[in-house]
Design a protein around this nucleic acid. Sequence first.
DNA 1: GTGGTCTAGACCACA
DNA 2: GTGGTCTAGACCACG
Lengths: 130, 130, 130, 130
Amino acid sequence: MQIDTRSHVPIYLQIADGIRAAVAAGLYGPNDPLPSLRSLALHVHVNPNTVQRAYDELEREGLIYAQRGKGLFVAEQGTASAQTHAQDGVRRALDEAVRAARAAGMSARRVREIFEATLDRISEPERDRP
Amino acid sequence: MQIDTRSHVPIYLQIADGIRAAVAAGLYGPNDPLPSLRSLALHVHVNPNTVQRAYDELEREGLIYAQRGKGLFVAEQGTASAQTHAQDGVRRALDEAVRAARAAGMSARRVREIFEATLDRISEPERDRP
Amino acid sequence: MQIDTRSHVPIYLQIADGIRAAVAAGLYGPNDPLPSLRSLALHVHVNPNTVQRAYDELEREGLIYAQRGKGLFVAEQGTASAQTHAQDGVRRALDEAVRAARAAGMSARRVREIFEATLDRISEPERDRP
Amino acid sequence: MQIDTRSHVPIYLQIADGIRAAVAAGLYGPNDPLPSLRSLALHVHVNPNTVQRAYDELEREGLIYAQRGKGLFVAEQGTASAQTHAQDGVRRALDEAVRAARAAGMSARRVREIFEATLDRISEPERDRP
DNA sequence: GTGGTCTAGACCACA
DNA sequence: GTGGTCTAGACCACG
């Protein structure tokens, strides 16, 4: 998971999004244990409080549940819920991007070009670039 | 121009983006006067200081220039600068959206479907909804 | 006279300084007529009101006097007064510059180097530079 | 740091200059923490917003970076950047002072006299005056 | 009327 | 505690 400390999106939401995406993608199935607060905090170089807030968010959403002393787990309906949520997010992000492009007078064709280039670039496996 | 007070993007940046888009789209050409601080503040229901900050941003960017007591104007190179900037923004937004989609396990095909639907929807002329 | 609209020093003070310097340098002697409000305003591309404020300033200072319907003239003691004032200004400006240099840890020697280079450059007649 | 509320230079720029000088002089090295917004505001008897604006300026300049909830720090390249910037400032100030002196008809020799006196005065260690 | 600076005080995100 | 954003309202310089 990547955290962008300079983004305007609060870090705890970036973390929640990352978890949600991982669940949506099936990396964690129903009743699978999620990374512990501390381990995730270390991994993304963030204060545990911040991770706590992200997990709070997801628990309130019903995507995960906590078991005292054991940890956090994906809820029964977690996968479907995460997929819906993630898809809404993507839809909203694309909507915003296209809206901005059109406001700046960009042609639909030009936006599509950029989109396809982006899709190609990101669908390829990551590799170092010169 | 639309302001979303619930967005994580600060209002002053939303305003700056709006102006930048308008300049990129050619609504304001080089040396054209821009809306005054106070009039724009009234229009978007925001404090003049917030608009000021947006204009500061654009002035630093070289997109506009201020004349004390006269007003704000599009810079000579404003159109080109705005177009470059706006296109970078769209590219970044699309990148982020696609990245999120892929992280959530969405297929390239599915992302493209959503994108095309969005493009269609937004390219249609705006109309009042009942 | 040169006006820097981007300076923090108000334009009317820049104009007053310019007139004061011209009087100190002897370009205008006692009882000589000064440029009219309008002609000076045209010359420096500034609103006549602004020039008016500059002249007000100088009149209050006793450097010039107005004759209804005739124009503005250098006062009897104008030259000496202007010279004193100008010298004070230079002293203050140098003081500020040196203070800033020392605060930034620059050696006295280094400051002197820059000063001498500046003096050389400005004492030469102006010419186009490649 | 000294603030001159009667100067035409905005307070936030005076503060930015002060910090820049301190960094240029090596009082704060790369990654050193700078005074917090609020503490500096108290120290110079100014509103925290004004200090914030000064720090914004320096952050944009690449001299410092902010960490939310942690504080403000000197950037890796901060020292060099500050020195360049400070030297440019001194050069500009000297240029302006000399230009004013010459416009007022002062001889190069006279300007040098004043300069050397200033340098002597300021290079002496500060002492309390009765 | 215009833009530019400053204050006082509020709320948020984060450690 | 930290930095970041916003508001309300003031005063200045300029046209």
